[in-house]
Amino acid sequence: MPANINQQLNKIACKVRQDILRMTVLSGSGHIAGSFSITDVLVTLYFSKILRFDPKRPNWDKRDYFLLSNGHTCPALYAVLARSGFFDVAELDTYAQLGSRLQGHPHFAFGSKDNLPGLENTSGSLGQGISQAAGIAWAMKMDGKNNQVFCMMSDGEQQEGQVWEAYTFINYHHLDNFIGIIDCNNIQISGPIKKVMPLRDLKLKLMSFGFRVLEADAHDFADLEKKLTHAKENKSQATIILASSLAGKGVSFMENDSKWHSHIPSENEYSQAIKELQIKEKSDVK
């Protein structure tokens, strides 16, 4: 990946993280840590031509689907959709306010004209997006279409039994148009995953279910682009990318601290965080 593209993605990611902070502070709610840990993956998906989409035609029948399964990280998705041109960035400020299209956890209403453009599914109760993605993938196969279906999950979410039902289903039905991404930030609401309910060897488990498992650095745009492109171009097997991330990535005092799972920054913390992100936006640092 040329350095200038890398720099461009970094700039967008810094803006997205500032959007997330603003939404969180304005509404007094939201999940910063997970939103920050998935930001770079989303920016890569939407801004380096991995996902096929057209913001002017959100229901375009040739689009690839992106489903967010860990719905609590939706501020990141909302910001990326806005910055991709699906809707006005100013609307982000309505996040979780009464009557907003940007619900505290994503709400998609089938057939409704009031949906947030670009949003594909409802999520918030963990473990469901993966099955929804499998259903869409099945429908695409049934209709002989080549749209691909991406699904973002969290690592804590892997504790849900439904996820493992879905993994069995996807591989039995050979849904090689499915690409899962697990945001591995190693924390959940009560603390480190290894202390709450360890997942053991996730890679080995996924391989034994039949997946092609790729590993990526969730904050290295070049690595993400390489792994996502590989998954997209090499069908014949459903893929899962284990994206190793840092919770709260991007703001020094928020990184790798489960306190920031759903903590809202004070005025001072907010200014400090914005300042850090603005400096990064202008630098060449990832």
Binding site: S131, A134, I136, M142, Q162, E165, T168
Partner: peptide, 27 residues
């Protein structure tokens, strides 16, 4: 081709049905 075997996995079955409906099917 229109029968989706889900095995003994009812939670996934409902989620898959949701995905099929999102893609315009009537499950």
């Amino acid at each position: 081709d229109r029968y989706v075997e889900c095995g003994v996995s009812e939670q996934n079955m409902m989620g898959v049905a949701s995905g099929l409906a999102l893609a315009g099917k009537t499950p």
